[in-house]
Design a protein around this nucleic acid. Structure first.
Lengths: 112, 112
DNA sequence: CAAATACTTAGGCATTGACCTAACTATTGT
DNA sequence: ACAATAGTTAGGTCAATGCCTAAGTATTTG
């Protein structure tokens, strides 16, 4: 139970940075090396590496080194876990029609 | 574009803490006051308040004060935005994996 | 083997985050 | 009015983040 929560924390934390989200997006279209991933960013390589480490610690990505090139790729599971958590919350509040209803009414009032 | 990204960052950041996720869970079953929300946690009130502020800044919740009681409630939109972002990523790599799958199947067929 | 390439590690600095205690303000109940 | 209640603000500690430059380690490549 506890470890699941910690894992979720790390995943959400990893997702909380635009650079890291961009890296995930990039990896969505296939594996890539450190320098390929770093290229779009105006940042010193060691700084960028830290972001990759955060991603790897969260297990959103994994990497393997072949020769002098380290290749990163996505690991789907943690992203799924995060999505599930959010989805569960959504289901919970959607059940409560009250709140949603009030919310929509307020939106209407704001638009008028 | 940029503001959307910043908003997402704040939402994911807010979600990266177990206390804050627990608060959201609590609010999923209805609005609640500061002290109701704080009660399960072994934490000084000012520390807990900071978490509520993080949640409010991320717009995952909003609050109104009536008399001396401040009541919090969920705001669904940011959670939906976060879920959408993840979902979009998932779709992206799922497509790719399908393509890879097709490719592998073709290879198999060629071998036959 | 020497030079270029692709990372890696070390160390430093500024900011932010998470927690605390103590003291304060604004209601409300008696 | 006074005490209790419900939050709030101020200020301090300590660790973690995000960025940097400089220097180091492996691997190719010429």
């Amino acid at each position: 139970m506890k470890s699941r929560s910690q894992a979720l924390s790390k995943v959400f934390y990893a997702l909380s940075d635009p650079t890291r989200r961009a890296v995930l997006k990039h990896l969505g279209s296939g594996p890539a090396s450190v320098s390929e991933l770093a290229q779009p960013f105006d940042m010193a390589l060691p700084s960028f590496l830290q972001h990759l480490q955060v991603l790897e610690i969260s297990k959103l990505v994994r990497s393997k080194k072949a020769g002098r090139i380290r290749t990163y790729q996505l690991t789907p599971d943690p992203l799924l876990a995060a999505e599930s958590w959010i989805s569960a919350q959504r289901t919970s509040w959607e059940k409560r029609l009250n709140q949603l209803d009030n919310y929509l009414k307020e939106m209407k009032e704001k638009k008028l």
